[in-house]
Design a protein around this nucleic acid. Sequence first.
DNA 1: CTGAATTAGTTTCAAATGTAACTATTATGC
DNA 2: GCATAATAGTTACATTTGAAACTAATTCAG
Lengths: 172, 172
Amino acid sequence: MPSPSQALELENFLPYRLSILAQIVSESLHDLYAEPFGLTVTQWRVMAALGRFAPLTASDVGQRIVMDKVAVSRAVAGLMERGLVERATDRADRRRASLRLSARGRAMHARIVPIALGYEERLYKVLSAEERRSFDALTDRLFAHAGTLRQAGARTSRSALLDSEPPARSRS
Amino acid sequence: MPSPSQALELENFLPYRLSILAQIVSESLHDLYAEPFGLTVTQWRVMAALGRFAPLTASDVGQRIVMDKVAVSRAVAGLMERGLVERATDRADRRRASLRLSARGRAMHARIVPIALGYEERLYKVLSAEERRSFDALTDRLFAHAGTLRQAGARTSRSALLDSEPPARSRS
DNA sequence: CTGAATTAGTTTCAAATGTAACTATTATGC
DNA sequence: GCATAATAGTTACATTTGAAACTAATTCAG
């Protein structure tokens, strides 16, 4: 078996494959909540982050969902306009503001979660339970490894996601 | 084991995981070719498609790399300006134009391919050969299944990718 | 304390992207 | 053949997105 890799076979090229798989999945899911709830993908992710991890600052949200602070700021602005998110300025440090879902936001969140989980469930149906675990484990490792590869010579190094631990507050 | 899924754990939610994994991989790769070659992600994908599948029309390219014709048109315009791609109008059907890499384009392509494959190789190093095959097979199935799920109630149904067969020319 | 440096978050401006309209060419129905 | 429809591709406009500048508040050095 000579030269194992000389030609770039796009259809077998991992970055490309991941990209289109992620894209079709993300769009499919968006199709389910966009119209009934009027949320963009980023807005939904902010809501999901707040729904899961109680009060968070905008920066915390950004670290959670791998989104820069500008994107978070805009998504939050839109959500606050619609009364889905509440902001409370931190009295000790008035630069910060902790965010949480409002009652309306929680209600909407509660309606979307089953839709999202239902889609995931349908998608996963094509895999056996074991395959599913295997796939999760493999993506975890790929993700961690991709992060370390990126360190070597990258400007932005914001990583540490796929992680259920909070990102370690800078101050105690 | 009661209610197997009630809360949405973002960090374990497949669409989210796929999305950020694809994002970090795509960005890491882009870091490698963006600066030296001055290509956007879409331009590089067009070049990759042309590099692999000889002469293609703009529509063919779009089907190959899952990109709408406007995006292809713009990427091609940029590539032609730089003399990386050549266009030849089809004499039989003057709406069509077949695209191919120019000599310069082929030279650049030849320099980028090893970089791309090298990145893929480094990324895959975290998996054993068997895990790698397994991961590929699982993504294939997820992809195919995601496509069928999307059919049911989707406006755009452009699928059929991850496939090395050409997308069946409309005319013989 | 006072001034430089940090940090949280927003706003501004430019580039990228998507949708819809448009041009040019070919196919189809009658 | 001729009007209508369909197809390939581009252009125009409106929205989204990202990078950098900016505001406000806090920390840190001396």
